Simulated scan of single mutants.
Amino acid sequence: MPRSTRTRSLIVGATTVALLGSLAGAGGARAASPTATPKAAAPCVVDSPAFRKDTEQVVYEVSFGTPSATVLRPGGLGYVPTALAYDRRYSEGAGFGSFYAVSPKGVVNYVRVNSTARPNGSVAYSYSQQRIRSGWQGVRQLAEGYDRLFALSGGTLVRYAKQWDPDYGLGKRTVIDGSFADVRTMAYARGEERPSGADLDVLIATLSSGALVEYSITQSGRVARVTTLAATGFGSYASLSLGPCEIEGARGLLGITTAGTAYAFFDPDEADGSARDMVRVKVATGWRATSYSS
């Protein structure tokens, strides 16, 4: 079942910090953005792992207002994913984490990034991949919700239950009612537990119209409500990621435009149904990539 907002934030916070800590400790090449503005935003940590067109992996991050780009040069993936999403369950203790990646041939793989320290102090990187399923041609967005994975293909949104044994597998498949053809970016926002037991998955998305919305989805696959957080202003983003803050009930967002300009957002109340209280700060330029993780 979906975790409550509070529980979900604590889980994501712990694994995100662990992932970023492993990046720094394992020798990733961390370089501050040329337009870095330290302490410009809120007490939040948001990361957006991505792949460039040369198959080079990079992790874009804004931590307490300070932006950085960590470039990884592991070998062996051999393709630029058409969609990817990090598995927050296992982001710690697995090199640079684990993620689901869809290949251009429509194969979804479960990928781990492994690091090996060399005697001279450098670090060697490699990928290990497990083929999960085929037939995912056209999947353009993935959103990971701890124990579930959403896949968007064209206008069709599907939710998969993530299996614990094997830990990389996908189980029950639920097609979500409605059309999502106008969705540009998508991320898992939170799980909402209700006294009635009618728990909801909440996805945050940007639309081709420029709107920022949240979809509240029931366990049966029905969209219970669509909340428009902002009617305009979000049409230029190629990626929108979420991350935890030290303030309970708040969230951080990292938006990267198609031109590679990055903005950090602070939302003091993630569940108020509005973006009017969001604060936006430009933090970096040149953050271009071909494929982003939510």
Rank of each mutant, 00 (worst) to 15 (best):
T5A: 15
T285H: 02
Y100P: 02
C44T: 10
F96A: 05
V108N: 01
D277V: 05
T5M: 12
Y125P: 01
S196H: 12
Q130P: 03
T116A: 13
N109D: 14
L10C: 09
T185Q: 14
V158Y: 11
G286C: 02
P166I: 07
S153F: 06
G154D: 14
A36Y: 11
P244L: 03
D87E: 05
Y292A: 00
A29Y: 13
I247E: 15
G97E: 08
A262N: 09
F266K: 02
G221Y: 11
L170C: 07
G154W: 12
V226G: 10
A41Y: 12
R118C: 01
K162N: 07
A271L: 09
G13I: 06
S209G: 05
G243V: 12
S122H: 07
S91V: 13
A238W: 06
V108Y: 01
P166C: 09
R288C: 00
F51C: 00
P34K: 07
S293A: 15
A143V: 02
S115T: 12
V80H: 01
G154A: 11
A41E: 12
A271T: 13
G286A: 01
A289R: 00
V111W: 08
E56N: 05
A264G: 09
V58E: 00
V279W: 03
S4L: 08
G21L: 04
N120K: 08
L240V: 13
P2K: 07
R52L: 00
E92V: 11
A231L: 05
T5W: 12
A32I: 10
A83R: 00
D47E: 02
V281L: 01
